[in-house]
Design a protein around this nucleic acid. Structure first.
Length: 579
RNA sequence: GGACCUGUGGUGCAGCUCGGAGUGCACGCCGCCCUGUCAAGGCGGAGGUCGCGGGUUCAAAUCCCGUCAGGUCCGCCA
């Protein structure tokens, strides 16, 4: 007999651990009453639920329990009589008979039904999250998450990484995301902040000689919430020294593939890669969903000297929508509207019918132009071709968004298609003060070939920065860091960060780098998102025990809440009345 | 900061266009009956500020305005 780790002083095991090989044993199990079915005063059935599932107990006589009572049932494992087996239950071949039922706790009727017969409003689920946890869905999702965490930790340790915890109370470094601030009692008027990520802490670990660090780290960003974004989220954070980008990609790939295997039972193929420029060109986004085709095609040359006004732009991009010729006019109007909201001047569509190209624009096209449209992506009769004419980046992005809107399968469908997106641009654009903004963060190492463009053509500089993308979700990003003072000061200067400003914001990092910083690089990816995709959930709240609503409220605790006057006094805080 | 959707006994819905008594359905809850059920079954019952406030009207769940809560998205997220 294997050791039964589930046995305790009160129970011999879990409900679903009982099976036909144990027939005749007298056992005790504990759990909640899922259902009671009474047949007069001589016979009653009780479905007992624990985290493993349901087990039917047979009671001879009446049974004074209500749903969600906590009970300990002692009975004899028995085969069910012929014809009364239940295929829909894992334990449907057996039951506990001659049961004694001990009530451990009474329970009021729950505010919503736990039997999954109807979908419950998330508002109600969150208010009573502790009851929501009793449902199989939440048990599975949170246990899946635990499995992924355990697997990541195993994988990182096997790769020689050292787990180091970094502070949650950190120094403000205003930059990027808005920070959560924590007032200091001992230093009135001063504040800690909760880290957006352990970025600087882990780079200092590299200076300190921990050449492979990782952490399952909680990160905080006070930005508006979304289906895939909470104030606080969990990342597998890692950093390594004496490595190149390829080393990091290798470490992370191994960890993710290990986690995927642990979570899904299937080890995915190795993770492929494409450059940021390729992703934009073919998919119109930096986080391509590779579960489906519908790649973008460039018709700029064909339309270079077109007479058609709608196509007179520096770039014409086209996309084939298989079977799209059946789209109604209102659907096409909707897509056109969406394209305009995304900043396009318009959206041209062409239905491939047996006779012709069907489109308001068809009669204006030259023969070559019509042929080019017909030939997009080996289009066939019954397909639809969508075109956007604009500057290159806009055309790609608009069509890329429509591609996802039209073609993207639900999260739970299709294979898990991982891809590395590399060679992100170093700078994103220009801020209000006329300075360049960093696409990743200011410690990102430029591509060495592009170093001299920093001063001349900064927007063409590629960074040694990379993202991991899964089915159109950005899982995480990382970069090779700058460890050379000369390069760092050129980047700061390109970003319009003065020497003094750099010192006041990141002084402790810059001074640490004076004492011998090894070349280093790292990565961090969101565990909430990874687990959500493994679980087939559209929404990371489904894999977070106590998530917040879109307005940042915790419906169970009522947070955020006022604090007492005494607390305010201790913190030297004075609140200006609202309005 | 903005757009759109939702809000009706404990739960999930219908009713809202086209105003006419809190009307209906399913589940749950309470009581009684029932010796093999398992979404048990039968009979009976309780349970409502139609999110909230204002307006229009003889009359508002229904129309209008505002507001709150939840959701999806844009902005935002180095």
């Amino acid at each position: 007999m294997p050791i039964n780790y589930e046995a305790t002083s009160m129970r011999d095991g879990l409900c679903a651990s009982l099976n036909a090989t144990m027939v005749g044993s007298r056992v005790s199990v504990c759990g909640w009453v899922a259902k009671r079915r009474e047949h007069g005063e001589h016979l009653a059935f009780l479905d007992l639920r624990d985290r493993s599932g349901l087990l039917q107990a047979v009671v001879e006589g009446s049974l004074d329990v209500r749903p969600e009572y906590v009970v300990r049932v002692t009975g004899t494992v028995s085969l069910r009589p012929e014809g009364t087996r239940n295929d829909r239950l894992a334990t449907g071949d057996i039951e506990l008979s001659q049961c004694d039922v001990e009530i451990l706790a009474h329970a009021e009727a729950p505010p919503f039904q736990l039997d999954d017969r109807v979908e419950i409003d998330e508002q109600v689920r969150l208010r009573y999250r502790f009851l929501d946890f009793r449902r199989e869905l939440m048990q599975e999702n949170l246990r899946l998450r635990a499995k992924v965490n355990a697997s990541l930790r195993r994988s990182m340790e096997a790769q020689g990484f050292c787990e180091v915890e970094t502070p949650l109370l950190w120094a403000p470094t205003p930059e990027g995301a808005r920070e959560f601030v924590v007032p200091s009692r001992l230093h009135p008027g001063d504040f800690y902040v909760l880290p957006q990520s352990p970025q600087i802490a882990k780079q200092l670990l590299m200076v300190g000689g921990f050449d492979r660090y990782f952490q399952i780290a909680r990160c905080f960003r006070d930005e508006d919430l979304r289906a895939d974004r909470q104030f606080e989220f969990t990342q597998l954070d890692l950093e390594a020294s004496f490595v190149t980008q390829d080393d990091i990609l290798g470490f992370v790939s191994l960890a993710v593939l290990d986690a995927a295997e642990a979570a899904t039972g299937v080890r995915p193929d190795t993770i492929g890669s494409m450059t940021w420029a390729q992703a934009l060109d073919l998919y119109g986004t930096d986080k391509p969903d590779l579960r489906f085709g519908m790649q973008l095609h460039d018709l700029s040359e064909v339309f270079a000297s077109t007479q058609v006004k709608a196509f007179s732009a520096s770039c014409v991009k086209a996309m084939r929508v298989p079977g799209g010729a059946s789209y109604t006019r209102s659907r096409l109007d909707q897509l056109t509207e969406q394209a305009k909201e995304l900043g396009a001047k318009g959206l041209a569509w062409f239905k491939l019918t047996p006779d012709a190209l069907e489109s308001p624009l068809a009669r204006f096209l030259s023969e070559d132009e019509a042929a080019a449209i017909r030939g997009v992506d080996d289009a066939e009769v019954g397909d639809l071709i969508l075109c956007v004419a604009d500057d290159y980046v806009s055309a790609c992005k608009v069509l890329g968004t429509l591609r996802v809107a039209i073609g993207s399968p639900p999260v739970g469908e299709g294979p898990h298609h991982y891809v590395w997106v590399t060679e992100f641009p170093m700078f994103e654009g220009i801020d209000d003060d006329g300075n360049l903004t960093a696409a990743h963060h200011p410690f990102t190492m430029p591509h060495l070939d592009d170093l001299d463009l920093v001063e001349t053509n900064p927007l063409d500089v590629r960074a040694q920065a990379y993202d991991l993308v899964l089915n159109g979700w950005e899982l995480g990003s990382g970069s090779v860091r700058i460890h050379r003072a000369d390069v760092q000061s050129r980047i700061f200067s390109a970003l319009g960060i003065s020497e003094e400003e750099a010192q006041s914001r990141f002084g402790f990092l810059l001074s640490a780098f004076k004492y011998g910083a090894p070349p280093h690089a790292g990565f961090a990816f969101g565990i909430d998102r990874l687990v959500a995709i493994f679980a087939g959930e559209e929404n990371i709240r489904e894999v977070i025990a106590y998530p917040k609503t879109q307005s940042g409220a915790d419906l169970m605790t009522g947070a955020p809440k006022d604090i007492t006057d005494r607390q305010k006094r201790e913190l030297s805080m004075k609140i200006t009345p609202k309005g």
